[in-house]
Amino acid sequence: MTDNLSPDLDRRPAGTPSIRRIAAIVNEAGGSVGAGAADEMRTILSAFTGDAEVVSVGPGEIVAALRAAVDTNPDLLITLAGDGTARLAAELCGADGPLFAPLAGGTMNMLPYALYGRGKWQDALESALKAGRIRAAPGGSVAGRQFYVAAILGAPALWAPAREAVRHGKLMLALMRARRALALSFKSKLRFELDGGRTSKAEAVAFVSPLMTAACAGEAYMEAVALDPRHAADAFRIGFTSLFGDWRSDPAVRSHCCKAAHVAARQAIPCLLDGELCRLDRDVDVAFVSNAFYALVGPDAPPAAADAAKL
């Protein structure tokens, strides 16, 4: 396999990980990808190794393609797709699987921006391949399902479809979805306990990875954010800022640091996992995971938000 490596890899700084086999999944229909991205990916990878497989997929083919790629046991898995694909790929890699490089190919790109900044995906990839380092990425789990950016439990999670409708210019659809989210508010509160403490109530609870927040010192905790609107005006304000701003700064929000939580409700709990909407049981456990997966990042990668706060 060494004969397949380019001189660029041979001259990488000492201590950088050995990358021989690479698998890449490209969704050219992604929010910021476009036609020709798979061929561009092949060109970049061919300069670093002769053992790289790049698969271009459509939306209905992503899950199967990701599972097949991980099953080949590559040294590095690359995705160029949206947030949902990045979340699933990170979960499949886990702490024991291949290194993972989620490149920005969606509309929000929360995990890629946290790991690589907001530059071009081509630059991020070349930097990681030439002089990459391994970074342990924290995250969490909700009812056994992984998240790496944030999990929002409760009715305000339903504002996400309205946000996406606004993002795509479908204002009437956004209004309809916003009305639905508001109609489901105030019907019942979530009950939650943080680290085995007393039971509290809130309209929703968000759990945020240290990759994204500097609110909790170090990477040993996730941030728990309780959203508790008292009336419709508060709900509208939180819903609006969840579309366009920092909802954690809203006066109807309370923030805590924790490693574990228990959340319960009278009915199934809507949940937003790294931008993907799903429904959970009425009773779920949330846990912080310090080494959720291992990312390959370049030497100029931004620090985690928690680390940046110390600089």
Rank of each mutant, 00 (worst) to 15 (best):
2 T>R: 14
6 S>E: 08
12 R>I: 07
12 R>F: 01
24 A>R: 02
27 N>F: 00
28 E>P: 13
31 G>K: 06
36 G>E: 00
38 A>N: 03
40 E>Q: 13
40 E>N: 12
40 E>R: 15
41 M>Q: 03
41 M>I: 07
43 T>M: 00
47 A>F: 07
47 A>G: 15
48 F>D: 01
48 F>V: 02
51 D>Y: 03
51 D>Q: 07
52 A>M: 01
56 S>P: 09
58 G>H: 02
59 P>A: 06
60 G>Q: 11
60 G>E: 09
61 E>C: 05
61 E>K: 05
64 A>H: 10
68 A>D: 15
72 T>N: 13
76 L>Y: 05
77 L>P: 06
78 I>L: 10
78 I>Q: 02
79 T>I: 08
79 T>E: 01
83 D>S: 07
84 G>N: 04
85 T>C: 10
85 T>R: 01
88 L>S: 10
89 A>P: 07
89 A>F: 03
90 A>E: 08
99 L>R: 12
99 L>C: 12
100 F>L: 15
104 A>S: 13
105 G>R: 00
108 M>Y: 13
108 M>K: 11
111 L>C: 10
111 L>Y: 08
113 Y>W: 09
114 A>I: 08
115 L>R: 03
117 G>I: 06
117 G>T: 12
118 R>F: 06
120 K>I: 15
123 D>L: 03
124 A>Y: 08
124 A>T: 10
126 E>I: 08
131 A>V: 04
134 I>K: 15
135 R>T: 15
139 G>M: 06
142 V>C: 11
146 Q>M: 11
148 Y>T: 13
150 A>G: 06
153 L>H: 04
154 G>I: 04
157 A>M: 08
158 L>V: 10
162 A>H: 03
168 H>Y: 09
168 H>V: 14
169 G>S: 04
170 K>G: 12
170 K>H: 12
175 L>C: 08
176 M>C: 07
177 R>I: 02
181 A>G: 14
183 A>Q: 09
183 A>Y: 02
184 L>E: 13
185 S>A: 13
186 F>S: 01
186 F>Q: 01
186 F>V: 00
188 S>M: 05
191 R>N: 12
192 F>C: 03
192 F>G: 00
193 E>D: 08
193 E>I: 09
194 L>M: 08
196 G>L: 01
198 R>T: 10
200 S>D: 09
202 A>N: 00
205 V>H: 00
206 A>L: 01
209 S>N: 12
209 S>V: 05
209 S>T: 10
211 L>N: 14
218 G>D: 05
219 E>G: 11
220 A>V: 09
223 E>N: 10
226 A>Y: 01
228 D>P: 06
235 A>N: 07
236 F>M: 13
238 I>T: 13
239 G>D: 04
243 L>I: 14
244 F>Q: 09
248 R>V: 13
249 S>M: 11
255 S>M: 10
255 S>W: 02
256 H>V: 07
256 H>Y: 14
259 K>E: 14
261 A>M: 05
265 A>G: 14
269 I>E: 03
270 P>G: 02
271 C>Y: 05
273 L>R: 04
274 D>V: 09
277 L>V: 14
277 L>H: 08
282 R>W: 00
287 A>F: 11
289 V>G: 04
295 A>W: 09
300 D>W: 01
301 A>N: 06
302 P>Q: 05
305 A>L: 00
305 A>M: 02
306 A>G: 04
307 D>L: 06
309 A>C: 04
311 L>Q: 12
311 L>V: 14
